[in-house]
């Protein structure tokens, strides 16, 4: 994936990207871990400002929810080749909001498939 970055000419952003929530919190995440989300992936691939700065704004997502999303990115990245992974804990009170964020970020079916093809 780092090679992809080099080919597309934005290798200077490096391994990490920044996700910004609606209330201004910033989360620095491993670029590879966010590849699971087709939405973020395309934000970073295409010639949008995000691909130059490595900063993605999410004005619809609250920090509580985005934090959980970031936690999921790491959870997925850590377990991407493992069998029988324990479920991540989802707090009930932000469940619906998180669901909406997951839909927005395209985190639905078969998370490992795109990674294998890459």
């Amino acid at each position: 994936m780092a090679n992809d970055a080099a080919i597309n000419g934005y290798s200077e952003e490096g391994k990490y990207i920044t996700l910004i929530s609606s209330d201004g919190f910033e989360y620095v995440v491993l670029r590879e871990a966010t590849e699971i989300s087709p939405t973020i992936k395309s934000m970073l691939r295409n010639p949008f400002s995000e691909s130059r700065t490595g900063r993605c704004d999410f004005p619809e997502i609250r920090s509580v929810v985005l934090e959980k999303v970031v936690e999921y990115f790491h959870y997925w990245y850590k377990n991407r080749d493992k069998d029988d992974v324990p479920d991540m804990n989802i707090p009930v009170e932000i469940c619906l909001e998180l669901l909406m964020a997951a839909d927005y970020l395209g985190l639905d079916a078969k998370p490992t498939q795109p990674a294998i093809r890459d």
């Binding site: 377990n79 991407r80 080749d81 619906l96 669901l99 997951a102 079916a109 078969k110 998370p111």
Partner: peptide, 23 residues
């Protein structure tokens, strides 16, 4: 079956189904 963790959406939906009486 698939390798790795469940998708975030699946996790959320499962949590939601478990607590549907709160929704």
């Amino acid at each position: 079956y698939s390798l790795g963790g469940k998708s975030l959406m699946t996790l959320c939906i499962e949590t939601l189904a478990k607590n549907i009486d709160l929704a």
